[in-house]
Computed example of a mutant assay.
Amino acid sequence: MVNALQWFFSILVVVTVLFSALYSIRSRRARDGRLRGLYASRMNISMGLMLIFIAIIQMFMFPGSSIRVAVGAVFLLLGLFNLFAGLRNHSHFTRLMRQ
């Protein structure tokens, strides 16, 4: 069961890395500032989810040590911040695109 969860979260990390790279490339190549911001916010959401999944793997899938839990907690906090900032910016740029 634990092995299946490790594979599941590993696949989720790889998928979110691919989405982060895709939106990063799109953001850098976009000419319109609104599209650039929209793609950057999607990249932040993907990176936030990736960091959260890495934190889950670190904290719950391996035997705990204090360093592993501390690194997992830092990744979790960074991931939550990126996710929050990405969602906030996505709603802002979505409203700008509608105008």
Results as ranks from 00 to 15, higher is better:
61 M>D: 08
70 A>P: 00
31 R>G: 01
90 H>E: 12
22 L>Y: 13
8 F>I: 11
10 S>D: 11
81 F>G: 00
69 V>C: 00
79 G>S: 04
35 L>N: 10
64 G>L: 10
86 G>M: 10
28 R>N: 14
71 V>N: 01
44 N>D: 07
10 S>Y: 06
41 S>T: 06
67 I>H: 08
55 A>V: 02
86 G>V: 08
65 S>F: 13
16 T>D: 04
82 N>F: 14
40 A>Y: 14
30 A>Y: 09
86 G>R: 11
85 A>L: 12
13 V>P: 03
6 Q>T: 10
43 M>E: 15
79 G>I: 02
48 G>C: 13
22 L>F: 10
69 V>T: 08
62 F>G: 05
63 P>Q: 11
87 L>R: 03
86 G>T: 09
30 A>H: 06
50 M>E: 09
84 F>E: 00
83 L>Q: 07
66 S>E: 14
76 L>F: 12
29 R>M: 12
57 I>H: 04
10 S>C: 12
28 R>L: 13
37 G>L: 12
90 H>F: 15
8 F>G: 04
34 R>T: 15
31 R>V: 15
75 F>S: 10
65 S>L: 10
87 L>G: 11
34 R>I: 15
92 H>N: 12
85 A>K: 05
53 F>P: 02
46 S>P: 10
84 F>T: 09
57 I>G: 02
62 F>S: 11
42 R>L: 15
76 L>P: 02
63 P>Y: 08
33 G>S: 07
75 F>W: 01
91 S>Y: 11
89 N>V: 06
59 M>D: 07
23 Y>H: 00
29 R>F: 04
79 G>M: 03
65 S>Y: 07
56 I>K: 00
88 R>Q: 12
91 S>Q: 15
17 V>H: 04
15 V>H: 03
33 G>R: 07
85 A>Q: 07
